[in-house]
């Protein structure tokens, strides 16, 4: 692993709030607030956080499926926020996404062949005969019989549909795939099939993944590095091993301690967080986590913590983490 494939700097996405019949501007939901990170070629970056933390919005902003408010995104050295719509469309050959719900993300009126060949049509790639061959080879690669190409989505189980979703993302031979909760809707036995498939494909095609999920065990399993988000902001970023062995941010610690462990004799020192997630339209002042933080001090209410490298390659945004 060497070169940087994706570089995100100070990415913000604010959704404006409007009130009343005149649609007066009434502040904004700061769904993604000051996110910066790099992803290297062949790497898997896991992104975790609870619902509403902005992880999906961030994933979509990177592909410009949602237009970011500000910041820069460099993909393979090119600033993609400067691209025109048609340039961006061409760029999406290189960057693809797999969604959570395999039922909602496939067109029910399209055969699998239509769904899988559409990206090639849009990008004017190959002749018809070559397209069919390509569809069949990718289907085979994701573990589905090539003859399934003539079937419709309703004929498949959830796990098979997710394989189709992955096949669709692979059609144009991308470099980066953003996986947004790809296994959350699947049963345990099928989830592991899809996880193994993703790992194999990464090896074979030298893919780079951004793996967005709320399930920490799954993220730990698949990621090289993990970014923890809270209320649109970065809480902690470290290598997967480091993060799970030595979490620094109190939110990460609480999150890790809350995961139920499938071992009835496991020792648990649970940190139960009080209260609920604050609204991202009205985030708390200072550190956004201070309202639920078990170790919050006065400074946390007054000043937002800086993002700093606490240990080599281990970053956290917390006043109270010792240097």
């Amino acid at each position: 692993m060497s070169e940087v494939l994706l570089e995100v700097n100070h990415l913000n996405k604010y959704f404006p709030l409007q009130r009343g019949i005149f649609r007066r501007s009434a502040g904004a939901v700061r769904a993604v607030d000051g996110i910066s990170f790099e992803v290297q070629t062949g790497e898997t970056l896991g992104v975790v956080g609870e619902s509403g933390c902005g992880k999906s919005t961030m994933g979509r902003s990177i592909l410009r499926l949602i237009e970011p408010t500000s910041g820069t995104i460099k993909f393979a050295g090119q600033d993609i926020l400067a691209l025109t719509d048609s340039q961006m469309r061409a760029m999406r050959r290189e960057m693809q996404i797999v969604f959570q719900d395999p039922y909602a993300s496939l067109n029910p009126r399209y055969t699998i062949f239509q769904t899988l060949s559409e990206p090639m049509e849009i990008h004017h790639l190959y002749h018809a005969a070559v397209r069919r061959k390509h569809v069949e080879s990718i289907l085979d690669r994701v573990g589905l019989a090539p003859s399934y190409a003539s079937r419709f989505p309703h004929e498949f189980s959830g796990g098979q549909r997710q394989r189709i979703g992955i096949a669709r993302a692979l059609m144009l031979n991308p470099k980066l795939i953003i996986l947004d909760e790809p296994v959350a809707a699947l049963d345990v036995s099928v989830q592991s099939q899809v996880m193994n498939l993703l790992e194999d494909l990464q090896q074979e095609f030298n893919l780079t993944y951004i793996f967005i999920a709320h399930d920490l065990s799954v993220v730990k399993h698949i990621s090289n590095r993990v970014l923890v988000m809270y209320l649109g902001r970065m809480a902690e970023l470290a290598s997967s091993d480091d993060l799970f062995a030595d979490a620094l941010h109190p939110y990460t610690r609480a999150l890790l301690s809350a995961v139920p462990i499938p071992n009835p004799r496991a020792k648990r020192e649970r940190i139960i967080l009080r209260g609920d997630l604050p609204s991202p339209a009205n985030p708390p002042p200072g550190c956004v986590f201070h309202t639920r933080c078990p170790i919050a001090q006065d400074i946390c209410q007054q000043k937002a913590p800086e993002w700093r490298e606490v240990k080599p390659n281990h970053y956290a945004a917390c006043h109270l983490v010792a240097l």
Binding site: Q191, S192, S217, H221, L256, V259, P262, N263, A266
Partner: peptide
């Protein structure tokens, strides 16, 4: 199931 307390990274057995 992937284990959060796993020491080393093992391939899942589906």
């Amino acid at each position: 199931i992937p284990k959060i307390d796993a020491r080393s990274k093992q391939r899942l057995q589906p």
